Simulated assay, not measured.
Amino acid sequence: MTLDDLTQRLRDFAAARDWEPFHTPKNLTMALSGEVGELIALFQWLTPEESAAWRTDPAREFNVEDEIADVTLYLLRLADVLGIDLIAAANAKVDRNEKRFPPLPR
């Protein structure tokens, strides 16, 4: 499945539930922020070693994957509602970052 396929699936999901009126940039941004907060909470009090070993706890592994999915879906839906090509925007940002942060000399 591509991002375009997933975007269409989300459009269809929202349309089937008549959620489009609620999927405003403000609401989607707030929902995205809430999901990022839930992801943060999963790592909040862990040591760096514990956070790197997140897959060793099956419950944490499930919850991290679930929250990453929520963040991804809200971000994709927001980009769609705003008419932003997420891949193009991300590539443009990496291009700018490559100029701002040149590689270290080796």
Rank of each mutant, 00 (worst) to 15 (best):
M1S: 07
T2V: 06
T2L: 07
L3W: 07
L6R: 15
T7M: 06
R9Q: 12
R9Y: 07
L10N: 02
L10H: 09
R11Y: 03
D12Q: 13
D12G: 00
D12R: 13
F13D: 14
F13C: 04
A15Q: 14
A16W: 05
A16G: 15
R17V: 02
R17Y: 01
R17G: 00
D18P: 00
D18M: 02
W19N: 08
E20R: 12
E20I: 07
P21Q: 07
F22E: 12
F22W: 08
T24C: 06
T24W: 03
P25I: 06
P25K: 09
K26P: 00
N27T: 09
N27R: 13
N27D: 11
L28A: 05
L28H: 00
L28E: 03
T29W: 10
T29Q: 13
T29L: 06
T29P: 00
M30L: 12
M30K: 05
M30G: 08
A31T: 04
L32I: 03
S33P: 01
S33H: 11
G34A: 04
G34I: 02
G34Y: 02
G34D: 12
E35L: 01
V36L: 15
V36K: 02
G37S: 10
G37Q: 06
L39P: 01
I40R: 02
A41M: 13
A41N: 14
A41T: 10
F43Y: 14
Q44K: 12
Q44L: 15
W45D: 15
T47N: 04
T47Y: 08
P48T: 07
E50P: 01
E50R: 04
A52N: 05
A52D: 15
A53E: 15
A53H: 11
A53Y: 03
W54V: 04
W54D: 03
W54M: 04
R55H: 10
T56R: 10
D57A: 09
D57T: 06
P58H: 08
A59Y: 05
R60Q: 09
R60G: 06
N63L: 15
V64Y: 04
V64S: 05
E65Q: 14
E65W: 05
I68V: 14
I68Y: 05
D70Y: 03
D70S: 10
T72W: 08
T72V: 07
L73I: 02
L75A: 15
L76Y: 05
L76H: 08
R77Y: 01
R77F: 00
L78N: 05
A79H: 07
V81G: 01
V81L: 06
L82S: 11
L82F: 06
L82D: 08
L82T: 05
L82C: 13
L82E: 15
G83A: 03
I84W: 14
D85M: 09
D85Q: 11
D85E: 14
D85C: 09
L86A: 15
L86S: 14
L86V: 13
I87F: 01
I87V: 15
I87D: 12
A88Y: 00
A88E: 11
A89W: 10
A90K: 11
N91C: 07
K93E: 12
K93C: 02
D95H: 13
D95N: 08
D95Q: 13
R96L: 02
R96E: 15
N97K: 14
E98R: 15
E98M: 08
E98I: 03
E98H: 11
P102Y: 05
P102C: 01
L104M: 11
P105L: 03
